Amino acid sequence: MMRNSREADGFEGEAASTSMMSGASSPYQPTTEPVLPGRRLNLRCDPDYLRSTLGALKVLQVLLALIAFICIETVKECLPCGGLYLFEFVSCTAFVVTGVLLLMFTLNLHTKVPQINWNLTDLINTIVSTLLFFIASIVLAAMNHKRKGEIAAVVFGFLATGAYVVNSYLAIRIWRMSSSRQAAGQGSEYTRARSESRGEVESRPEIQRLEE
């Protein structure tokens, strides 16, 4: 009986070791892959930006550009049409670009792309839109046919030009302030690095002897 039990134990041990070896060498082993958390785009409206001067100007610019575009679209006949087409292109482009920037700043999407200098981007947009709206409004005023749609478009075009002028002034101030802060930060980092290196030299007299 003892021999039979020993043989049974030995057989079970061999079977267990064989199953472990076969399980280790089996290509059909269960694998566990790490589950990566999905990236979510957290959209958060910033009411403080809309209440600020720049936010209010952006909303005003979008509304004026949209109204100017609608007014020029009511004109059905034109000869020549160069001034009308130019004003139509400028008002539509300003509405789209400024509207996109307004959404970016309002929803804080610009923080997701820190590689872009958004202050400089806003400055370029406002300056270009100011010049284009001013030129298009003057051309349309000189080439209009005294129709109500054209007159209204010219009025809203000059109003949009004024809104973009104020925004350009504020954007230039913000851009200068950010540039000066960056320059001051780089200067402080350079000064700190020089002071740290000087302190290291003073703490190591062998370096001073080598320099002498």
Rank of each mutant, 00 (worst) to 15 (best):
I135R: 12
H110G: 15
F158C: 08
E88C: 03
H145V: 05
G185D: 02
F158A: 09
F156M: 00
A183H: 11
L159K: 07
S137D: 00
F158Y: 03
Q115T: 04
L170M: 14
M104E: 06
T121N: 01
V155T: 03
V97W: 06
W118I: 06
A160P: 05
I116C: 07
L107Y: 11
T161V: 01
M177V: 06
R176Y: 11
N119C: 05
V165I: 10
V113Y: 05
L107D: 04
L140K: 06
G83N: 04
V165E: 05
N125L: 14
V166S: 08
Y85E: 01
A136C: 03
F105K: 11
S129A: 06
E150I: 12
N167I: 15
V155Y: 00
I135F: 13
S168Q: 09
N144K: 00
L131V: 03
G83Y: 06
F133Q: 02
S137P: 00
T93Q: 11
N119P: 07
M143F: 11
L140Q: 08
T98L: 11
A160K: 03
N108E: 14
L120H: 04
T130V: 12
G185M: 00
N117I: 08
T111N: 10
V90L: 01
L131A: 03
L170G: 05
L140G: 08
H110W: 15
T106M: 02
F158Q: 05
L86W: 00
N125R: 11
S178H: 14
I174Q: 14
L140W: 07
I135S: 13
L131D: 00
A141S: 13
F134C: 05
A171K: 01
I135K: 11
I124T: 05
L101R: 10
A163R: 02
A142Q: 13
T126G: 14
T98R: 05
A142M: 12
G162H: 00
V97C: 10
M104H: 07
L109V: 11
E88K: 07
L132E: 04
I172L: 10
A152I: 15
A136K: 02
S178R: 14
L86Y: 02
I138Y: 12
T126P: 13
K112D: 08
L101N: 10
N125C: 15
I138G: 07
A94M: 07
V100C: 04
L84F: 01
Y169N: 06
I135C: 13
I151Q: 13
I135W: 14
N144F: 00
A184S: 13
F95G: 02
Y169T: 08
R147W: 09
H145D: 04
L159W: 01
K148T: 13
I151S: 14
E150T: 12
V96E: 03
T106A: 05
A142E: 12
L102Q: 09
L107I: 12
L103T: 06
K146A: 08
H110R: 15
I151W: 12
V165P: 10
V155L: 01
T93N: 11
F158S: 06
